[in-house]
Computed example of a mutant assay.
Amino acid sequence: MEVSKRFEQAINKLYNAFHNDTLHPECCKQCAVGNILDGKDSWKHLSDNHGATTLNYLGQVHQNLGRTFNGYSPIELLHIEATFLKGCGYIIPLHHKNKRPKHVTDKDVLFLGLTAVVSYLCELDKRHDVMDCTTLFNYCNVIKQVSLLS
């Protein structure tokens, strides 16, 4: 199956950010979307809160004009970031009173966030989830067999 340019670029940027320690969930330039957008933080003006999934007035204007940023619409960018933050263990939107991981740059925390983002990027491009290992382990058949034994 052919991979879209936006998908390939996003995955490469996130991979590099993870391995170069330039991924930080609380920094608009180094979060998932910040990395996808080449370290720019202008995307944060599309909503009123980091992690929000509702476009503000400016975000609505860009969305209605059909603008994309490295291939992603404003609403897609907000959902990518929300997916990343939730995957890392945050309660969104980000707020000092909301739950957050104890060590926000811990590789295990970041990996969970990235796993969620990659799955979501696959969903956006209507492709098989490359993070889904159920077919690799024939997981669905195991569940059917266990339920038959019960």
Rank of each mutant, 00 (worst) to 15 (best):
L23G: 06
L23F: 08
L23H: 05
L23P: 00
H24P: 00
H24Q: 09
H24E: 08
H24Y: 12
P25D: 10
P25Y: 07
P25T: 08
E26Y: 01
E26V: 05
C27T: 03
C27R: 06
C27P: 01
C27E: 03
C28A: 11
Q30W: 06
Q30F: 09
C31Q: 06
C31M: 08
C31Y: 02
C31W: 04
A32W: 02
A32V: 00
A32H: 04
A32P: 00
V33Q: 05
V33Y: 00
V33S: 03
G34S: 07
N35C: 11
I36G: 03
I36D: 04
L37E: 06
D38W: 08
D38F: 12
G39N: 13
K40Y: 13
D41C: 12
D41G: 12
D41N: 13
D41W: 02
D41E: 14
S42Y: 12
S42K: 09
S42C: 05
W43Y: 05
K44R: 10
K44S: 13
K44W: 01
H45S: 10
H45P: 00
L46H: 07
L46Y: 11
S47M: 02
D48N: 12
D48I: 00
D48F: 00
N49W: 08
N49H: 11
N49T: 04
N49P: 00
N49M: 09
N49V: 05
H50R: 09
H50M: 07
H50S: 04
H50Q: 04
H50W: 01
G51N: 04
G51M: 06
A52G: 15
A52D: 15
A52Q: 12
T53Q: 14
T53M: 13
T54M: 07
T54V: 14
T54W: 07
N56A: 07
N56D: 15
N56G: 04
N56C: 08
Y57G: 02
L58M: 12
L58P: 01
L58V: 08
Q60A: 03
V61Y: 13
V61E: 15
H62M: 11
Q63C: 09
Q63Y: 10
L65N: 14
L65R: 15
G66V: 13
G66R: 14
R67N: 15
R67G: 01
R67E: 15
R67C: 14
R67S: 14
T68H: 06
T68F: 03
N70C: 09
N70V: 01
G71A: 13
G71T: 10
G71I: 08
Y72Q: 05
S73C: 03
I75E: 05
I75C: 01
I75F: 04
E76C: 07
E76H: 13
E76K: 14
L77E: 06
L78H: 05
L78N: 05
L78D: 05
H79T: 12
H79A: 07
